[in-house]
């Protein structure tokens, strides 16, 4: 018996009927599949080909800003692993915030679904809401954005195909962007290739990995993982000894718990070659500055993480060789394929 499946069976030629979007599975890299639990895909926003394509279009389109000059991609640039090379991003009026834009990749494996530096967004969808109306970012209103999208010649049809029915609202906009963001998967660094047996590391990179994994030296693994976790972050919140007193409370401002003051989410150590400047406030321009901070520059405070050792001395005092080797290893986590044109503007 022949069964004819019509993937757009209820669509009329005038494009106003319903549509069945095409399911789209995330391409889970081998190292991820072998070593960590599956990604988080909310049942209320399953990935579809049409949804991802729409999200990509929206991500790169300045239509989301009030004066049509600023897109998500302006602060999350492909070439920079979807972060901003500037310490603080420029909003549409030239105003700037106080935090560095976070890079965007492997977001579906943030199991706690706490996003942004301070964990104030509880899902990717929720995160996408804020920049549109933030006065120092896109400075728009959702009503204005939705009106512009409805008046556009292409978006109404794209929304209908992405969500099955006609209609545009803020929820659909953020769902589509979140779908696209979940496809930003970085998994082909030199170290990934080394783990897959496709290349070798230099002696310097290998020693750098040992420094990273040595509790008496780098001790980076407790918060940033190991060769058994390709995310290179715990996505948890820590005070890593940047300040004695806090101008930015970080997680503490979200929870209201003083014990969380000065804590920020651990960023992934992937793609550091592209994501300078570093830390939540972009205070360090180079990896050398970052390594020097952990080695010699720790500052005591009431909430500093217990894993920050020898704080009174500023840190464990890595040797110049260990610092250089650690840097070489960290750079081996950069995925040059990820920043190529495949994810760039549609």
């Amino acid at each position: 018996m022949a069964v004819i499946i019509c993937t757009s069976c209820t669509t009329t030629d005038d494009g106003i009927g319903d549509y069945i979007p095409t399911p789209s599975r995330l391409e889970v890299p081998t190292l991820f599949e072998e070593n960590i639990i599956p990604p988080i895909i909310p049942s209320s926003n399953l990935q579809t080909e049409e949804g991802v394509a729409l999200g990509k279009l929206l991500f790169f389109d300045p239509i989301l800003s009030s004066n049509n000059t600023l897109a998500c991609a302006d602060c999350h640039a492909t070439a920079n692993a979807f972060t901003d090379p500037d310490r603080f991003s420029d909003g549409i009026d030239g105003r700037r915030g106080t935090r560095n834009a976070m890079p965007l990749f492997n977001l579906a494996w943030n199991y706690n679904e706490r996003f942004l530096w301070d964990g104030s967004a509880f899902s990717l969808e929720q995160q996408a809401f804020a920049p549109v109306t933030n006065p120092i970012e896109m400075n728009s209103t959702w009503q204005a954005v939705v009106d512009k999208l409805k008046q556009d010649t292409t978006y109404p049809e794209l929304f209908r195909k992405a969500f099955g029915t006609a209609g545009i609202d803020s929820i659909r906009v953020t769902k589509a962007i979140a779908q696209f963001e979940r496809t930003l998967i970085s998994s082909n660094s030199k170290f990934d290739q080394f783990l897959r047996g496709q290349t070798t590391l230099t002696p310097q990179e290998l020693n750098g990995f040992d420094v990273f994994m040595d509790e008496a030296r780098g001790d980076c693994f407790h918060c940033h993982g190991s060769d058994k976790n390709p995310l290179w972050t715990d996505n948890a919140f820590h005070n890593n000894g940047l300040d004695t007193t806090f101008k930015d409370l970080g997680l503490g401002a979200v929870t209201g718990d003083p014990a969380d003051n000065g804590k920020f989410r651990s960023p992934s150590l992937r793609n550091l070659a592209f994501t300078a400047p570093y830390m939540h406030d972009g205070r360090f321009n180079t990896l050398d500055e970052v390594i020097n901070h952990y080695s010699d520059g720790l500052k005591p405070s009431s909430t500093i993480d217990p894993l920050m050792k020898k704080v009174a001395l500023g840190g464990v005092g890595l040797s110049p060789t260990d610092k250089a080797d650690l840097k070489a290893f960290l750079l081996s986590l950069s995925d040059f394929n990820f920043t190529n044109a495949s994810k760039s503007q549609p």
């Binding site: 072998e34 070593n35 960590i36 639990i37 994994m213 040595d214 060769d227």
Partner: peptide, 16 residues
């Protein structure tokens, strides 16, 4: 064994 949930929880001990 390679425990995916424990790896995800950064529960590993370094090879060193």
């Amino acid at each position: 064994n390679n425990y995916q949930d424990l790896n995800s929880a950064l529960w590993n001990v370094p090879g060193l």
